[in-house]
Design a protein around this nucleic acid. Structure first.
Length: 558
RNA sequence: UGCCCGAUGGUGUAACUGGCAACACGUCUGUUUUUGGUACAGAAGAGUCUAGGUUCGAGCCCUAGUCGGGCAACCA
């Protein structure tokens, strides 16, 4: 059918590059992408931009996307991180074509390096890193050649071989590409390709005593896997020149030549995104682990109650470009509200209970009231809730002298109890300090919700959620707020970001009263607590003590 | 001081390759509502960093400047 109103979704600049390549004759079935995390930390919302982009492109063009662990530095990398990264990606709903490891290519990389030595394109340098740093020059001054730069091929071959055999100590020798010590791009000044490391590798064990550097490894790995478009963040822009140079050393024109392109990384306000800083928060116990619901990690967001759909929607709305982006966390929150609004059951839970006694309600009487499970979804049906003479309402929903325009219960003021009756405040019982500890009220017997009576249709200012005082469960609620007090905790290098942590980022409420229907709630289930927000059952929850994490508040009015 | 990127409402992203600056989030109004939620209707808010130039016409092209970011790990 002709669709003249078809929404023309504009392409981001990466998609435009791909479209241009396609228009220029590149075959669509040669398109191939990759997501290349280093297994030295947990995935966070910033990585989500990269993996949603790559896997999203794979879905859009029906092209394979490899998951490649960039594991060239055994001193920082661990199997634990590999496992968690895979778990997160699978949870997000992404399917990789192949699970690859840069370490799978160590032999090929080594062989190529030997070839480069033979062609006079690489040499073994035997200086200290300090000396090499001095010779590197600065962005404005050229570097100087290493005294070992013109070693004989045979000597280079011999040394490199013995480096591999483990005959040297760490730091004694490195293999360098022979490019140009006067290059304006510092990365081109004879970059290091291999260093000696006597470390156990999570996959290759103790097979290797030399490990390749990122620049030498990444592009060649892309080439080996025949990746068509190698997408990375902006800080690698300057590396592109080296990426291409290394590729030139091994490139065969019959093969696909990978193309590196760079986009800006995603920042979220009121949090930090660097792996190093997140690691610090974990190690110094400022949070309870990588999956603490306050962390911007995928595992933290998951535990907080975020859904894959909401995260993907967020990344989609954030877009892809080449300028620094600091995205308002309100956008993330809007995405999860939109998703949860249509899917979650509405429940009644009182976080700060205040006892309310209906003086004219029969002692010992109970009745069932009907509640809609989800007004956004007719098929979700209804459930019944026990109503009784004594109930709990939210402390904050009672204001002794309450003006009519405020939607709360007051003395002499009427409100509706959700799904129940209209009540009128009569008396506030206080303790010695003047705190209200109980409220007495009367109810209008004819005002029962859904009864159809004139009285039930009365308009009152305010509808309160409630829980029967003798028919409820007590549960714990973790109320989470932003982890930092300022929008950009890491913007000022003079200020330690840890001093900017929000002291109220977590409050644990242990005496919350919830309706009986929540009794069998299971970990990771999500609910809306009416008038409060969205909550997710925590994984540490037990049948004896349910724990709910607040995902996000409802959009706050007034 | 060198090189490389970038600059569009508060935030983010568009503007079909030069033709009245749009969308989302946020903000504010109103309507509906047994959630101060949702839904719906509407409003405010940028004249596209600055100055020149090319052009009938520039957010898009050119030049210079300004501002922001990146680049000198045996990290990735």
């Amino acid at each position: 059918m002709e669709n003249s109103n078809e929404e023309h979704k504009s392409l981001n600049f990466i998609e435009q590059i791909i479209e241009e390549d396609l228009a220029g004759g590149f075959s669509a079935n040669q398109l191939k992408f990759r997501f290349p995390p280093e297994p030295n930390g947990y995935l966070h919302i910033g990585h989500a931009k990269a993996f949603c982009l790559n896997f999203g492109l794979g879905e859009k063009y029906n092209a394979p996307v490899n998951l490649r662990f960039d594991d060239t530095n055994p001193s920082k990398e661990e199997q634990e991180f590999v496992d968690n990264i895979k778990y997160d990606l699978a949870w997000m709903g992404f399917k990789w074509a192949e699970e690859c490891y840069s370490s799978d290519y160590f032999q090929q990389l080594y062989d190529w390096a030997v070839l480069m030595i033979k062609k006079g394109k690489a040499y073994v340098d035997s200086q200290s890193s300090e000396d090499m740093a001095k010779q590197k020059g600065t962005p404005t001054t050229t570097g100087t050649n290493s005294p070992f730069r013109d070693r004989m091929v045979e000597e280079n071959l011999d040394l490199f071989n013995r480096m591999k055999q483990g005959k040297f100590k760490e730091g004694e020798h490195v293999l360098r590409a022979k490019i140009d010590m006067a290059h304006t791009n510092m990365l081109m000044r004879d970059p290091i390709m291999y260093r000696v490391m006597h470390k156990h590798h999570h996959r290759t064990g103790n097979d290797w005593c030399v490990y390749p550097m990122y620049d030498w490894t990444h592009g060649e790995s892309d080439y080996i896997e025949q990746i068509s478009h190698s997408l990375c963040s902006l800080e690698f822009k300057a590396h592109r020149e080296l990426y291409d140079w290394f590729l030139d050393q091994v490139y065969d024109k019959k093969q696909i030549r990978p193309k590196q392109r760079e986009f800006s990384r995603l920042n979220l306000n009121y949090t930090v995104m660097s792996k190093r800083k997140l690691m610090q928060l974990v190690e110094e116990n400022m949070v309870n682990g990588w999956d603490d619901p306050r962390m911007p990690t995928i595992s933290g967001l998951r535990r907080r109650g975020y859904t894959p759909a909401a995260i993907r929607d967020f990344i989609d709305k954030a877009g892809v470009s080449k300028r620094d982006q600091m995205i308002d966390v309100a956008l993330l929150e809007s995405c999860i509200r939109t998703d949860l609004n249509k899917s979650t059951y509405r429940m009644m839970a009182v976080l700060h209970p205040l006892k309310l006694v209906i003086t004219n309600y029969l002692e010992g009487k109970t009745e069932l009231v009907s509640a809609e499970n989800n007004p956004e979804d007719e098929s979700a049906g209804h459930r019944e809730i026990i109503f009784s003479k004594e109930i709990f309402i939210e402390k904050d929903d009672f204001l002794e002298e309450c003006p009519n325009k405020i939607f709360k219960l007051g003395i002499g003021k009427e409100v509706r109890l959700k799904n129940g009756y209209i009540i009128k405040g009569e008396e506030a019982i206080k303790d010695a300090n003047g705190n209200v500890v109980e409220v007495r009220c009367t109810y209008d017997e004819k005002s029962k919700s859904g009864s159809g009576t004139e009285e039930s249709k009365r308009k009152v200012q305010g509808t309160l959620h409630w829980v029967s005082a003798s028919h409820n469960i007590t549960a714990q609620v973790n109320v989470y707020n932003r982890l930092f007090t300022v929008e950009a905790p890491d913007s000022d290098k003079e200020v330690d970001f840890k001093t900017l942590i929000n002291k109220d980022s977590l409050s644990v409420l242990k005496d919350c009263k919830m309706e009986l229907a929540l009794k069998d709630a299971k970990p990771s289930e999500r609910y809306q607590f009416q008038r409060i927000g969205y909550f997710c059952v925590d994984k540490d929850s037990t049948t004896e003590c349910l724990i709910f994490n607040r995902t996000v508040t409802l959009k706050e009015g007034w």
